[in-house]
């Protein structure tokens, strides 16, 4: 009798453990599927807004586009390059106004850099050190060198110590004709 009772208890324990594990497994799998999606979406939207935009100037008749769909610079049409520069206020500021001023300047510099990257191009240099079939050190260096004239700040926002500056520049064919 005792054996029967103990065996039934043992069976019951095992079944509860198995059902519990299966429920936990279901929950975890559903969580794994549900959680990463909004993060990826957020990253996508962020990338979309901060990437430089190239468009033709208004009142432009014939619009030539490249293989990727981006408008090309032609004699007839001027290009408008819009970028979003971002800057952060330093920690040790005296007042919110000073934080805003410093963050805005940093954001403008970032905007200029983005315009320079788009107009002039970026020099990229990569270096990987592999020892015993393992990556020991990976280095990527990029540099930009340009002179930017007549860029305009169109919009400025400052929120939570981050300043975002929307800048645009009009590029004409004659500037590159030399």
């Amino acid at each position: 009798m005792k054996r029967v009772i103990s065996s039934s208890i043992f069976v019951a324990l095992i079944t509860t453990i198995i059902t519990g594990c299966s429920m936990f497994a279901k929950e975890s799998s559903s969580k794994d599927l549900a959680e990463p999606i909004p993060v990826e979406r957020e990253q996508l939207t962020e990338k979309e807004t901060s990437a430089p935009k190239i468009s033709n100037e208004e009142n432009c008749g014939v619009q030539a586009t490249g293989p990727s769909g981006e408008p090309l610079l032609t004699k007839e049409c001027k290009l408008v390059i819009t970028v979003l520069g971002q800057g952060v206020a330093p920690v040790n500021t005296v007042s919110p106004a000073q934080a805003y001023g410093l963050a805005k300047r940093a954001a403008i510099a970032d905007g200029y850099r983005l315009i320079a990257e788009k107009v002039k191009g970026v020099r990229v240099e990569g270096n990987d050190l592999i020892k015993n079939m393992m990556v020991k050190q990976s280095t990527i260096r990029t540099c930009v060198d340009a002179v930017i004239k007549n860029a305009n700040v169109t919009e400025t926002t400052f929120k939570d110590g981050l300043c975002e500056v929307e800048m645009e520049i009009v590029v004409s064919h004659s500037q590159f004709a030399q």
């Binding site: 510099a109 315009i115 050190q137 280095t139 990527i140 990029t142 540099c143 060198d145 004239k149």
Partner: peptide, 28 residues
């Protein structure tokens, strides 16, 4: 300073990503 920016600024930027750590310097 806004006026100076319109005259033409020399932009010099360099960044380095070493073992997934990013550092950048921009000089206007």
């Amino acid at each position: 300073i806004d006026y100076i920016h319109k005259l033409g600024m020399h932009v010099k930027h360099s960044d380095i990503t070493m073992n997934a750590q990013y550092k950048s310097t921009t000089i206007l």
